[in-house]
C-alpha cells in the first residue's frame, strides 16, 4: 500500500536518509530498527511532509504523497503517533481524542468515532474528563494511540511507541498494536526496543546511517546473527 523508493531527505542541512527503500503491504506490521541517529524517525516524518525531500518518491496506492498537505494525507487514511509524550497535556482525554478527528466536519460521525475508540480502550472512557497531564505515561500513550485511531486509518505510523514506558506497559502497547492490525490497519513503526518489536512484526528493516542495511521477516531478523550482535544485545 505504501512504497518508499530511493528516498533521500533531511531537515534542510545535510541529508539524513540516503536512497532508502521501504514497502508496507495491507494488514502488515513493519518495524524499522537501527541505532540512534540512523534516520528511523526521519522516514516517518518524510511520509507526513515534515522533511525536505531531495529525491525519491513516497507512493500510497499509486498516488504520490510528497506534494500533499498534512490534512490530505490524513484524509487518505494515514495517521501518525509522534514520539514521546505527544498528548495535549492541558486538554482532557476526550478533547485529545476529538483533535484526532479534527479534519472531520460532521459532529455526529465524531461522536461515533469516539464511541468506537472507547470500546477499544475502556480505560480512556473512565478517564475521559481528566486532563491528560494527570495520566500515567502508559495511559498517555494509549490516548495517543486512540487519538490516531479516531479516523479508522488504513495505515498507522508509530514513532517509538515504547519509549519511556515500564516493561509490562510496553507489552500492553504492542498487544494493542496486534489488535489494531487484526482490525485491518497496517502499522509502520520505528523502535528502539528491537527484540520485542520484531516479535510482533511481520517484517522488519534495519537502518544504519540513513541507509538500508538489512530487511526480512520479523522472525528471521530476530535470529540473524549480525542483527543480534548489533542491535538486540545478544
Amino acid at each position: 500500500m505504501l512504497t518508499i523508493k530511493n528516498l533521500t531527505a533531511g531537515y534542510g542541512g545535510p541529508n539524513i536518509l540516503h536512497d532508502v527503500n521501504v514497502t508496507i503491504r495491507e494488514g502488515e506490521i513493519v518495524t524499522i530498527i537501527g541505532p540512534n541517529g540512523a534516520g528511523k524517525s526521519t522516514i516517518l516524518k518524510s511520509i507526513f511532509g515534515m522533511t525536505k525531500i531531495e529525491h525519491g518518491s513516497i507512493r500510497y496506492f499509486e498516488e504520490n504523497l510528497t506534494a500533499l498537505p498534512t490534512s490530505e494525507i490524513i484524509e487518505r487514511g494515514i495517521c501518525f503517533v509522534p514520539q514521546g509524550r505527544s498528548v495535549f497535556p492541558s486538554l482532557t482525554v476526550e478533547e485529545n481524542l476529538e483533535m484526532g478527528a479534527f479534519i472531520r466536519k460532521d459532529k455526529k460521525v465524531v461522536r461515533k468515532d469516539l464511541h468506537e475508540v472507547y470500546e477499544k480502550f475502556p480505560k480512556l472512557y473512565e478517564r475521559r474528563h481528566q486532563l491528560s497531564k494527570t495520566l500515567s505515561g502508559g495511559e498517555q500513550q494509549m490516548v495517543s494511540l486512540g487519538r490516531a485511531l479516531m479516523l479508522q486509518p488504513r495505515l498507522l505510523l508509530l514513532d517509538e511507541p515504547s519509549i519511556g514506558l515500564a516493561p509490562q506497559i510496553v507489552t500492553e502497547v504492542f498487544e494493542k498494536c496486534r489488535q489494531i492490525k487484526a482490525a485491518g490497519t497496517a502499522i509502520l513503526m520505528v523502535e528502539q526496543n528491537a527484540t520485542l518489536a520484531l516479535e510482533y512484526s511481520d517484517r522488519g528493516y534495519v537502518l544504519e546511517l540513513g541507509r538500508n542495511r538489512l530487511e526480512g521477516a520479523g522472525k528471521d531478523l530476530l535470529q540473524n546473527k549480525q542483527v543480534g550482535e548489533l542491535y538486540l544485545g545478544k
Binding site: I74, S90, L91, E98, M99
Partner: peptide, 23 residues
Amino acid sequence: SKTGKSLRAVADNKEVAAIMGIN
C-alpha cells in the same frame, strides 16, 4: 467550540497539532 479546542491544542504542542491536520 472545535476552534477553541484546537487553539488550546496548538498552544500545548504546535508540531503534534499540525500532525492532526490543524492549520
